[in-house]
Amino acid sequence: MTSIGTGYDLSNSVFSPDGRNFQVEYAVKAVENGGTAIGIRCKDGVVLALEKLVTSKLQKPDANKRISTVDRNIGIVSSGLLPDGRHFVSRARDEAASWRSLYKAPIPTSALANRMGSYAQAYTLYSSVRPFGVTAIIGGWDSEAELPVDGQVGSGPKVGAGGKKEDGKHGGPFLYMIEPSGLYWGYYGAATGKGRQVAKSELEKLNLSEGGLSLEEGVKEAARIIHVAHDDNKDKEFELEMTWISSLDGPTKGRHEEVPKELREEAERLAKKSLEPEDDDEEEEKMQE
């Protein structure tokens, strides 16, 4: 059933007779035009990558970053309307700060995803607002160490009850994707934006659920997938933006940071190489000859 002319698409908070909220579906359309954004949950960290479409040659290369840091250990990348994405990130930062002031500890990635999911959902309920025109991917590393309470000055008692369960799993990499409806799931690999279909099928090939992929491999795969998902015919120029979060003993020490320039360029070089199969064929042919 089409929505045109029925009037059911004119407002939030109005369902169509067959139970759809058209405003939300239009918001999803806005996302589908954005540059591809992906997230990969590796065994020892998370990678976020974005195909940043260059809209003007007058923009400074490598400036105008689109992947944002929330607290210290969480990153958000979004696809869709940029200003909506910025507002979304700003709210996420406020949530993280308010969590800290309440609990004197960093917000777990799952809790942030939950709160941001609720926030996005609230924008589907009222006629005075419109849904977020973004799908956001939230990647984070929850510390595996026994974290001190913010402002704690001592190490606490050395004997007695309390503390964490000895053999339990604590912290680790987390990845969530939130859609304009407020729907969110945890993922091993997430993709949104223009090239999401290609990116998703590439992500599936990585067998991420087996937990074999290392962070460094993840960075290279992320760069490759963004390049694969990029449509050379429709959009000419893009920049690859990548951030990562490793474990405490990894390269970023549990913090969300930009992938170092050298590593990113290396990953991009490999990505471009893998996209040129002709060269390999020629070489092989020569060998056969």
């Binding site: 800290r100 002031s101 004197k104 913010d150 402002g151 704690q152 000055v153």
Partner: peptide, 9 residues
């Protein structure tokens, strides 16, 4: 001091 620590955080 703990308050200031959180402020600096």
């Amino acid at each position: 001091m703990q308050y200031l620590d959180r402020l600096l955080n």
